[in-house]
Design a protein around this nucleic acid. Sequence first.
DNA 1: GGCAGGATCTAGCAGCGCTAGATTTCCTAG
DNA 2: CTAGGAAATCTAGCGCTGCTAGATCCTGCC
Lengths: 198, 198
Amino acid sequence: MPTQSRRERARAERHELILRTARELAESIGWGAVTTRRLAEAIDYSQPVLYGHFENMNAIADAVAIQGIEELIAVLRYARTSAPDPAAGLSALAKAYLEYASNHPAVYEAIFVRPTDLEFASSDSPLLLKTAFAEFQAAIEPFAAGEDPETLTEVLWSALHGQATLAHARRLRPGQRDARVELLVARLSGKNSPTSAK
Amino acid sequence: MPTQSRRERARAERHELILRTARELAESIGWGAVTTRRLAEAIDYSQPVLYGHFENMNAIADAVAIQGIEELIAVLRYARTSAPDPAAGLSALAKAYLEYASNHPAVYEAIFVRPTDLEFASSDSPLLLKTAFAEFQAAIEPFAAGEDPETLTEVLWSALHGQATLAHARRLRPGQRDARVELLVARLSGKNSPTSAK
DNA sequence: GGCAGGATCTAGCAGCGCTAGATTTCCTAG
DNA sequence: CTAGGAAATCTAGCGCTGCTAGATCCTGCC
């Protein structure tokens, strides 16, 4: 039993080592360059070891994505619930989302961009996605003036996702991130006309 | 001279054949499965022939993207200028954009999603991107109530891009595409509060 | 100490992008 | 109409990829 559990502990540690290393590699050289050989060398094992922990390379990125979405949910929840009122909460959530995407582009890519069979194949990831969606909905719902809150949530999330991906692809002016998110939040929450003359 | 021009003509035809076949292959099996061997076999030549026309596989997708963005610009312009007033123009442009992305997902991916060195390396593509951007700006500018029109344009484009990519990844409710774009356009153009009680 | 059994590695397959060198095809000059 | 040379095209191969079968080594038990 102690023997068995020591083995299991070592195995679990290596499992985490693989995920941590894959994430670091992806953030530094991009997912496209994270190969089984490079990853195996980085953790100082041979490639087949990876397949003892994960079904394939894609599953490793999926696992990183799951860790990432858990982080993201926590970040969003903290930003939203720390704000004094719904308007500030929506703004804080939106900024936190873009900041996370900007600070962890490879993780963001693993979650939302990389072609993945994850979101509907894996068992717990749909729940995580729904939880993240609920964070967005909680933030925008106070501003759904008679509209379907779910549709409004999809609009908000899509708008932020678009800003995140286009900014990462350098298709948006770099210095204007806050201006974009503030303008988006103002219009989506319906505060555009009053403050437009400012 | 007739000889020379016949050769050149045949060469130009094959050039287009490559692009057309690459686009068809991408739309049917996805860019990830469009390999030099498959593409070469589809046009009934050996792989090296491809390299007589394009620098590499990426350049082929870039060329498809350039053709696509020209199409897209025409679609957007037609939608916008055919509308009776700015509000209808913005709505028509937004719907046309999402419809194009939905009908030609591989081309849309080649233009805006696939990692590419295109947009800033190639000579004419930045101009095309700017032209497309100008279409968005022309549609939304009437609703920039004192705000920076360029920022507002980035917000609009990002929001539509997010809806296009998330819808393609099946992360948004399928039947709600029009509801989403209408809600987005209403809020971005500032018509939300008046019609909110509807 | 010797021996299962599990963990790990070596070596290899098929397919990828891409290219050098052989081969074939075509145009031209005599 | 043929011979030669240039241009077009193909064959074959390199180093890389994800992934795996079979050999090897190492660990823990009797």
